[in-house]
Design a protein around this nucleic acid. Structure first.
Lengths: 201, 201
DNA sequence: TTTAAATGTTAGGTGTACCTAAGATCACAT
DNA sequence: ATGTGATCTTAGGTACACCTAACATTTAAA
């Protein structure tokens, strides 16, 4: 049985998937440009992909992914994006896209899963300030609600990115007391329901 | 300027480095076996590596790495081992060696560094079975060494992810006795030096 | 020391993925 | 509708890494 997959083939299918996502018609010229390959080579490769039933293509015609081709392409695209996130996660700063392009072909499904699990574990969870308990801390992510609430909170210094800690949790109707930049603040329960924070685990 | 590096070339140089570490004379036959390639192809490739000044080689002669060749080989070997550790670290259990063989060629120096930093922050400590004391336990992360050692240990059930406990620690030359899934097993000190475990800090 | 087995090399060939140059087709502006 | 520039394909060729079969050399045994 012949091998139907190679990093090169994967790269073509991934790019075709990207075009499909953008609702863009795939053209030989664009593939050539994006993959850094001559149009002649792309044309050739399209014939090969067609023979392998990864795309539907007749010369001068439209390029469409088959089910199989889309499956592979999406898998690579998914891996690419995961790797990008992951590289950011472990602190890689430069050439993240290029690094991901290399790695995407070397990541098995097994490894993909492990990476997802690992990231989830140390991922932050989103929680509402009103539900948080004494001693818990987090970083303000966003404020749900109209500009009135936003302005009020901004005035208090409760803007996205701010780190806070719960000093006294909210009772059924009572306010939450929090410390923020080492000063203390009381936030009414109604308002506290609109403040979302990222907390560990 | 011609490219002097390919995943295949890297694989050859890595394997040669491994042999050098083990103080073993590199033979065409062994390379063929370990790389899963015909002896004829190896012979050919050795000529190519010689032309690229990555090894010193004359037919029927001894294979020796040049400075350049050793540098590349060691870099790949280092990456391979790091990836093995890392895969264990993120919870990959099966085919760790094989997965690392794929990934090692796609890991840049930048990514290598980021991985090291991330692991350093980790909660588990990595230890070698040979150095562990009575009563200590851990989870097998990976096995360093050729496929021979890997196969032997796999046969014993000592695969990544397995939890073991040290029943009797290794003496200067003696084996380690461990319990594994409630049965007991003795592992020679040489082999035990190649088994890395995650133990609580 | 000869010889057989083990090991290594050469010759010739395959498949993949790329290239350039030249020719074919398409699509739009006149 | 037609000619021209853009786009695409074909033809012919390269480099790489592998293969098998046949031949050469080395090594170890008789």
């Amino acid at each position: 049985m012949k091998k139907i997959q190679s990093p090169e083939i994967e790269e073509y299918l991934e790019t075709l998937c990207r075009y499909a996502e953008e609702g863009r018609q795939a053209r030989v010229k664009d593939l050539a440009g994006d993959l850094g390959i001559s149009a002649a080579s792309v044309s050739q490769m399209l014939k090969k992909l067609s023979e392998k039933n990864l795309i539907k293509y007749e010369k001068y015609g439209k390029i469409r992914l088959t089910k199989k081709g889309e499956e592979i392409g999406r898998s690579i695209l998914r891996k690419h994006r995961l790797v990008e996130k992951f590289l950011g996660f472990i602190g890689v700063k430069r050439n993240v896209h290029e690094e991901a392009c290399l790695l995407e072909h070397a990541i098995s499904d097994q490894v993909e899963e492990a990476i997802i699990k690992t990231m989830k574990k140390s991922m932050k969870k989103i929680r509402v300030l009103a539900e948080m308990k004494n001693g818990e801390s987090g970083i303000v992510l966003f404020i749900e609600g109209g500009s009135t609430a936003c302005k009020r909170l901004t005035a208090m210094g409760l803007t996205p990115g701010t780190k806070i800690e719960v000093e006294r949790e909210s009772t059924l109707i009572g306010p939450v007391e929090i410390s923020i930049r080492s000063s203390r603040l009381a936030v009414g329960r109604g308002l506290a329901k609109k403040i979302y924070l990222a907390v560990d685990k």
